[in-house]
Design a protein around this nucleic acid. Structure first.
Lengths: 200, 200
DNA sequence: CTAAAAATAGGACAACCGTCCTACACGACG
DNA sequence: CGTCGTGTAGGACGGTTGTCCTATTTTTAG
């Protein structure tokens, strides 16, 4: 019951290693060392390394969807939900400083290798994009919503990238504050007519 | 005279390949195939792959410094010089869409591999950072200059990252326009007292 | 308890990696 | 002509990679 299957162990360990070391730089021996499994036994669970990658991507997809669902239930206003997104930069600042954004690094690595799973990996980005877009739409941003979602996604990626390059956590705090300020401006620019207080 | 040395050929080819395929994914055989040189002969010019990496980083450092110097001589106002920086996103949009930002991808790959040259590579970022900071300072942004430089650098990185992930050149144009608008606001927020037109 | 099935261990394999070594080509200079 | 230094070619080397195969153990089902 509480026992995770070996397969799940493999996928979770590969997930972490792919994040910390990259997909290509992670070998079967590395994963086997963590899971404490024989190298040969791998091919009982997965036919190839790419199959493990697919499983990892699917895990991240479901985990992400789960997290977004959680945020949906946690906050009342769409703006607060967007703030949940912005704040993962602060929450994961230590790991981001070391290894960058889990999503961005994987997608960009696969794009560079021209790997078959690259489009699959970018679906994780699409998940965030669609979710953010939905929140902006609920805020009343209309046709600009998708653009705003992409904008916020891009800024997050940029912050993660530079925090890694310069080994700078303080920069994350600085930019997160700016993003929150930017969001405040968005709110003021789009007063929600349907939620306005009823006129006496 | 016009003849490039074999060593230069190697460095330039490695530079391109490192950009297109990544450092780790580029083998000696790959470089040898482009330069049309024997694999063994490599070690007459470089003692190790890391030495080639150092040479590539140094090449990029000097090339970048050269470009920044060119921009210094090209534009009259610091704001125009910053616009030169912003516009490389548009100029290189096709390559960025395919392989991402040459600087960011290398720095992040080396950071992830925990490679010895990672700090060396991030000097390229520092070059841009210092140069941008100088421009903002000349614009009268004072103590905020470095923060503004980092902010612009981060946004560029984010745009490049998402343009690659989503294979979207149009997004580059969109964000470049926003960055230029943002710069306009910076100009208005910091009227240069010392360059104001002389009062009759 | 026994037989089938699921899971694991360990190693063989061909290919590739970065590294290194030795032999050869070639022009310069005496 | 011969010698020397520079540059090149080609292959050997030990190690690692992803993949695959075959025994052996462990678990399950009748």
């Amino acid at each position: 019951m509480g026992n995770k299957s070996t397969r799940d162990h493999i996928v979770e360990s590969a997930d972490q290693l792919f994040y910390q070391q990259g997909f290509e730089h992670t070998s079967f021996a590395d994963i086997a060392g963590v899971v404490k499994i024989s190298r040969g036994n791998f091919y009982y669970h997965f036919k190839s390394k790419d199959e493990i990658l697919d499983a990892v991507i699917n895990l991240r997809l479901t985990d992400t969807a789960k997290m977004l669902g959680l945020w949906d239930g946690m906050s009342e206003t769409p703006a607060d939900r967007i703030r949940s997104f912005i704040n993962i930069l602060v929450t994961n600042r230590a790991k981001i400083k070391q290894h960058g954004c889990p999503v961005g690094t994987l997608v960009n690595e696969l794009a560079r290798l021209d790997h078959a799973a690259k489009s699959n990996a970018s679906k994780i980005f699409s998940l965030f994009r669609g979710w953010l877009s939905k929140q902006f739409l609920q805020m009343g941003c209309g046709g600009e919503s998708d653009g705003l979602a992409m904008h916020l996604l891009a800024r997050s990626q940029g912050v993660a990238s530079l925090a890694t390059a310069f080994q700078d956590e303080a920069f994350i705090y600085l930019e997160v504050k700016q993003m929150n300020d930017w969001l405040d401006k968005c709110i003021k620019a789009h007063p929600l007519p349907e939620i306005q207080a009823p006129q006496v």
